[in-house]
């Protein structure tokens, strides 16, 4: 039942039963397959990073709620902090030291979320803002990803993460597939020259499977109507369009659209990160525009930027544009004469 300030009940008197916590629970469930496949290919470090980021996010959220004098129960367990933690953990290199993920999570909750007024008020995607902070401040640590096929198992992972044993990190890590291709291309090598090496294993080496798993989870979210099609479809269309354009321009110097589609954090970004409702536009057309722009910028950053992947910065950039996009995509109101 809905009540106004004086406790007078207001219609409607029934509710669909939807809740923020329910939405977040379903998002978490849909993330599960992708998380599992990532852990399969990249080792238990993935789970460890997710755990660290989630615990840190919850702790920071609880601290902020008590500082701001807000009710603990509904807000702490609304799922938003957990989802942010999981997304952040997924973005972390599996062998990064524990304090990196913790720092990012605390920054995400305290500065990005609560300093802007808490759930519903943040302009930027908290997880991506935390991740971007690390990229800017600790670029080297953030670029160290396990080389495909490297054997990094439990003992090594714990040592790398908690004892910050850099020897162990170096032993098992290398550049990500995306960085590898980009750095190679920047070194004026031709794509063909890169292919026989690590490049060949890019699609076979797990990234494609991880992307497929996130795609599956994302489609399930779509089917459950937790997210709408506009952002993921726009994202993928934008990504394919720009990468195809580049590829057609010079196939030797640009990765193929398929590589972009199935590499990096494409599906995670399209279905789980860019779709964060709070920081994306709210009108259907606005969402399509937003998705298209994010997808396009992802390719540009991947190709011409300094970072291992472009999803975080593309999303953050477009988060800033979301209010503008919303303003210009207001739906025509019933009975309003069409002026556009």
């Amino acid at each position: 039942m809905q009540r106004d300030a004086d406790g007078v009940a207001s219609s409607p008197h029934i509710h669909s039963g939807a809740s923020v916590a329910g939405v977040m629970r379903r998002v978490l469930a849909a993330l599960a397959p992708g998380v599992m496949v990532s852990a399969w290919f990249l080792g238990p470090g993935v789970l460890l990073q997710i755990g660290i980021a989630t615990v840190a996010a919850l702790a920071a959220e609880a601290a902020m709620l008590s500082v701001r004098g807000l009710a603990m129960r509904p807000f702490l367990f609304d799922g938003t902090a957990i989802v942010a933690g999981v997304l952040l953990g997924l973005a972390m290199p599996p062998l990064a030291p524990w304090w990196l993920a913790s720092l990012a999570a605390v920054f995400a909750m305290v500065v990005v979320k609560h300093a802007h007024g808490g759930v519903g008020h943040n302009l930027f995607n908290p997880a991506m803002a935390g991740y971007a902070l690390l990229l800017v401040c600790f670029p080297y640590a953030m670029k160290s990803w396990p080389a495909p096929g490297a054997e990094a198992w439990a003992a090594d992972v714990l040592g790398a993460v908690f004892l910050v044993d850099t020897a162990k990190v170096d032993a098992v890590s290398g550049a990500t597939a995306l960085s590898f291709v980009r750095d190679g291309l920047r070194g004026m090598k031709m794509l063909a020259e890169l292919r026989p090496g690590a490049g060949a294993s890019l699609l076979g080496g797990g990234a494609a499977w991880v992307n497929l798993a996130f795609l599956g989870g994302g489609l399930a979210l779509l089917a459950a109507r937790v997210i709408r099609w506009q952002i993921p479809a726009g994202f993928i269309a934008g990504l394919l369009a720009v990468s195809l354009l580049l590829y057609l321009g010079d196939a030797q110097r640009h990765a193929s659209p398929l590589f972009h589609l199935m590499g990096g954090a494409t599906m995670l970004g399209a279905f789980f990160i860019a779709t964060d409702p709070v920081s994306s536009p709210v009108t259907p057309r606005g969402r399509l525009v937003f998705g298209l722009l994010v997808g396009a910028v992802v390719v540009l950053i991947r190709r011409f930027g300094q970072y291992p992947d472009g999803v975080a910065f593309a999303v953050l950039l477009m988060n800033a544009a979301a209010p503008l996009i919303d303003r210009h995509t207001r739906p025509r109101v019933y009975g309003e004469r069409d002026t556009r």
Binding site: H15, V20, G118, V119, G120, R228, P331
Partner: peptide, 23 residues
Amino acid sequence: AEDCTMPCIRCGDCVEVCPAQLQ
């Protein structure tokens, strides 16, 4: 049971169902 309201998370579900096509 008394509903606990949360801040708007801008999910857009309301935009989708509004028959007057409002926001």
